[in-house]
Design a protein around this nucleic acid. Structure first.
Lengths: 222, 222
DNA sequence: ATAAAATATGACTAGCGGTCAACTATGACC
DNA sequence: GGTCATAGTTGACCGCTAGTCATATTTTAT
């Protein structure tokens, strides 16, 4: 017996379906509660009650409360991959793709300040989740660096910058924007994001664009 | 009796001294533990044990575990004020002052990844602390905006930008750098910070600023 | 039909932040 | 020095929560 196929040979199986259903129910209930009440204020019992299962069932699916949010990683991975594909296709200029990626990545935490705080709290609190996150973030940045490299080849991004470094700065700017908004959600995240991305992308575009002509040089003001 | 001076007329008082001492002991014990073990992993009882007082005493000084870190606000306020003064004095160019401010502000959370996580966790988890933080952050940004305005008058910062917006971006970049480092502390925070600040400051400098940072042009090397 | 495996359940535990009534030290006043 | 109100200390205690686990239930294989 090399392959441990066990008892999952060719059955779509009632169990399989149930399992996925239950997992989905728990996940969605958790997300709604996190969005409305926040991570800390939501108890596992509330989640399971909302999902219509017993408390113990939760831990058959997720090893800890934080791990539910670990699920988001998959979403983000998908988004990054899709945008990399988009960049490769070449229909859109890379800066535009980056802009869209920024919006896509912040879509979920941006659902509510509570949700943003929940995500950050969970990522920070749980050693295991954090470890996984940091790996995925790293590979995600590599993908972004690849997009940037493509943009450089096409003359859409200044080529005197190291792609990996630009990717890192992109990442930092995104995170900073979300966290600052989570701490102090004055206006919609989207607005902050526009500003941030505009800045980063502008800084990454070829020098040619000279967006600062009306710079009155007050030299003599000293 | 209009003035309720009560019993604190001219006494430095043993009580006063004791009170300050105890507060300091609790605060420092907490900081050490947070730095070494992290916020969540440190219990109030551990803190008080390390400080040599009973558990209940903790709550005579801080209304919650999170509030201990609220103390940092004062530090940060001081740092911002000092740097604003520095900028006003005009001995140093404003971009240099901003650079130093960035390092000063991240000094504390940068003591260890655990400490950074602790600060973020505490700020995010407690409603009350967060409210205070966001107020102070806002006034802090105003001060930074003021520095930037000064820099513009002196021709050290491009004047086609809105100071408040630049200040916001400065803030976002700092936060993003610290949070990303807290999630994934690969190299010293200082290094990341240098990069970030260099980028932001470069973006803020008058258009004259040549082509970006000293990046080796990788040419067509793949 | 029946055995075996997968899954669901909720009572239970350990440990935490925070409270509070009882206690002790301080210092103002005589 | 003695007295007493008040500030400050203490640790037993409470309510609550994440996570466990023995048991019960359901599905699947034979």
């Amino acid at each position: 017996m090399v392959t441990k196929k066990k008892s999952r040979p060719a059955s779509p199986g009632l169990r399989q379906r149930r399992r996925l259903q239950t997992e989905e129910k728990i996940f969605l209930s958790a997300m709604h509660l996190f969005r409305d009440k926040g991570f800390v204020q939501t108890t596992v019992e509330e989640i399971t009650r909302a999902a219509g299962v017993a408390k113990g069932t939760f831990f058959n699916y997720f090893p800890s409360k934080e791990h539910v949010l670990g699920f988001l990683i998959e979403r983000q991975k998908g988004a990054v991959a899709a945008h990399l594909e988009m960049a490769r296709a070449g229909q859109l200029p890379v800066p535009e793709v980056l802009k869209r990626l920024g919006h896509a990545l912040t879509l979920f935490p941006g659902k509510s300040p509570q949700m943003a705080r929940s995500v950050i709290a969970a990522f920070l609190a749980n050693e295991d989740v954090r470890a996984r996150i940091s790996v995925e973030m790293s590979t995600g940045r590599q993908a972004v660096a690849e997009m940037i490299r493509l943009g450089q080849q096409r003359g859409q991004i200044r080529s005197d910058a190291v792609p990996a470094q630009l990717a890192h700065n992109f990442h930092r700017a995104l995170i900073g924007t979300v966290v600052l908004w989570a701490l102090d959600p004055v206006s919609p995240l989207k607005k902050h994001l526009e500003e941030t991305i505009a800045l980063v992308v502008a800084g990454a575009c070829p020098a040619a664009q000279a967006p600062c002509p009306p710079a009155r040089r007050k030299k003599e003001a000293q």
